[in-house]
Write a protein that binds this DNA or RNA. Structure first.
Lengths: 112, 112
DNA sequence: CGGAATCCCGCGAGATACTG
DNA sequence: CAGTATCTCGCGGGATTCCG
């Protein structure tokens, strides 16, 4: 998916799907998103949001005040993407236990 | 999705989804997969397949002959994953033109 | 608050060579 | 054919600092 030229594909990116998923619940501010995404650095959130904005997945709305107020929101295209991704997200949560189990089995095998 | 401990998540990996997608059409041999995946190196295909096997997404069947004959195939879990991913795969092909366009727009903007 | 800029390190991954 | 082993390099991404 659109992976040419060193730019990362949306779905092949570690954080993009999670950000989009979080934004599915409605518009969020930068700091709120950061709080929700355990383990993301400030830099990566910025980079991820810029990329999503560039791809037309989210909009960025700046209120010129002090302190700044920046809100992110899914575009219709972003909403469509989240809807398309929902079955896979469900699969990942449903099957996580089985994957964990499969890994344990694999790692426990004689392995020569 | 199962991203703890330095192991890469299946969907957040550059090649996993494409391999699974290719295997959706039926069992394939190593070299056939490699031919189908433009740009993948031999090493990355090996690594990707090992990871998918470990996660219980594909099976690896070895015929002990010379030259070797190794066939990969989706497990039921792998098939379930592919089915869950289908809407997102469709989205990505459907919307690729719009993403490309959005990027061009973004890059063409005054940019301050 | 929401960034941008800079520094820096580890690992992701290509290239190449060797094997059952 | 289908790998493994090694070496190497680039860049993904964390930590830190500064700014409007």
């Amino acid at each position: 998916m659109a992976a040419r030229g060193g730019c990362k594909a949306v779905v092949a990116d570690k954080w993009s799907m999670r950000v989009v998923s979080d934004l599915g619940a409605g518009p969020r501010r930068f700091t709120d998103l950061k709080r929700g995404l355990e383990g993301i650095s400030q830099r990566m959130l910025t980079v991820t949001l810029r990329s999503l904005e560039r791809d037309g997945i989210v909009t960025r709305t700046v209120l010129q005040v002090m302190p700044p107020n920046v809100t992110y929101e899914l575009t219709p295209m972003g909403t469509a993407m989240l809807e398309a991704a929902t079955p896979l997200l469900r699969w990942s949560t449903d099957y996580l236990p089985r994957i964990t189990e499969a890994r344990a089995d694999y790692d426990a095998r004689p392995g020569d």
